[in-house]
Computed example of a mutant assay.
Amino acid sequence: MIQSMTGFGKDVIQLPSKKITVELKSLNSKNLDINARIPSSYREKELELRNLIASGLVRGKIDFSLYVEVTGETSNTQLNIGVLRGYMEQLRAANATPIGADQEVELLKMAVRMPDALKVEREEIDPEEYQIIKNAVIKALEEINIFRDQEGAALEKDFVERIAAISELLKKVVEIDPERVKGVRSRLEKAVDDLKAEVDENRFEQELIYYIEKFDITEEKVRLSNHLDYFIESINSGDSNGKKLGFISQEIGREINTIGSKSNYAPMQQLVVQMKDELEKIKEQLLNVL
C-alpha cells in the first residue's frame, strides 16, 4: 500500500494555566525537510522533537508548529520598571510644554513600546509539561499518517486505473502489429516496383527481412507488459516506495518511446500518444508518493 506525502495533523491540550497546540503539515519533497516554529523556552528540546517527527514521517516537507498560550492569571512577562521610568523622563524632557494627565498616558503607551521596556523571565522546562507536549506530537503524527494513508489510497486507485488503460492500449498495439508489418512490406515492394528496376528476388527478400526486423517491437511489447505488472506488484507490496515506482515509470516510458520510434505506422503512433498521456499523469502523481 502506498502513502501520500501530503497530510495534516493537530492536537490541542488544555492545561490549568496553558493551552498547548501542536500542528503538523506535510507536502511532497525529495528528502526530509522539517521547518520548526516553537517557543524560545523549548529551543533546547528542538532536536529531540525533530527526531521524533523524522521517525514518524520519513520524507516530505514538514511544517511543525508548537504554540503555548498562557490562559491563567500569571505571566512570565513583566514590566522593566527602571527602564520604563527612564523612557518617561526622557519623553517629558522632550516635551516643551506642561504635560497633562491625558498626555502622560500617551507617553506611557509610547514608553511601553520602546526596546527592553518588557522583560521575559526564563522558565525552566517542566518535565511533566514536556511529556504532555511529546504525547501531543505523537498524536498529531498518528493523525497525519491517517491522512497520508487516505490520500495514498486515492492515488493507488488512480494508478491502477491508468496502468490498466496502458495495458489495454498495449493489447491494441499487439493486435495491429501484424497489419503494420504487412503495411511496411507492401510500401517497400511498391517503392521497388516504382523504380522499374530488375532485382534479385532472393537478395531483395533478405534485405526486406533485415529492414523489417529493425522495426520489430516484440521485445518492447514483452518488456512493457512486464514493467506494467511490476508496477502493480510494487503498489501492492507492504511498503510505500515512491522512488521505486518512479524508476519503474521511467522504464515504462522508455519502452513506450521505443515502440513509438519503431512503429512507422500512424494507427500505432496514435496508441503510443495515448499511452504517453496516461504515463505523464502517473508521473505527476508519483511526485507526491512517499
Rank of each mutant, 00 (worst) to 15 (best):
I2T: 12
T6Q: 02
T6L: 00
G7N: 01
Q14P: 01
K19N: 07
E23R: 15
S29K: 15
D33F: 13
N35A: 04
R37M: 12
I38L: 14
S40Y: 05
Y42R: 13
R43S: 13
E48T: 09
R50Y: 08
N51T: 11
S55Q: 02
G56I: 12
V58Y: 03
K61G: 00
D63I: 11
F64N: 04
Y67I: 14
Y67N: 14
V68D: 02
V68C: 03
E73Y: 11
S75K: 13
T77L: 08
T77N: 08
Q78H: 14
L79Q: 10
I81V: 14
V83Q: 14
V83S: 08
G86F: 03
G86K: 08
Y87I: 00
M88D: 04
M88N: 06
L91F: 11
Q103S: 14
E104W: 01
E104V: 07
V105D: 15
L108C: 09
L108H: 12
L108G: 12
M110Q: 15
M114C: 03
P115Q: 03
L118V: 10
R122V: 11
R122P: 10
E123W: 02
E124A: 08
I125L: 09
I125M: 07
K134R: 06
V137Y: 02
L141W: 01
E142M: 09
I144M: 02
N145Q: 05
D149E: 14
E151L: 01
G152C: 05
G152S: 09
A154Y: 08
K157Q: 15
I163W: 15
I163H: 10
I163R: 14
A165P: 00
I166C: 06
V173I: 15
E175H: 09
D177P: 05
P178L: 08
P178R: 04
V184K: 12
R185K: 13
S186M: 12
R187H: 11
L188P: 01
E189D: 05
V192G: 01
A197I: 15
E198H: 12
V199I: 09
E201N: 12
N202Y: 13
L208P: 05
I212Y: 08
I212Q: 07
E213M: 04
K214D: 08
F215I: 03
I217P: 04
T218N: 14
S225T: 10
N226T: 04
D229P: 08
Y230K: 15
I232F: 12
I232S: 14
I235T: 08
N236V: 06
S237F: 05
G242C: 01
L245M: 11
R254T: 05
R254Y: 09
I256P: 11
N257W: 03
T258C: 06
T258S: 11
I259P: 01
G260S: 01
S263E: 02
S263F: 11
N264C: 07
Y265A: 05
A266I: 08
Q270P: 10
Q270K: 15
L271A: 10
L271F: 10
Q274A: 10
L279R: 09
K281E: 14
I282F: 12
E284H: 02
N288A: 07
N288Q: 07
N288V: 06
N288T: 07
V289N: 04
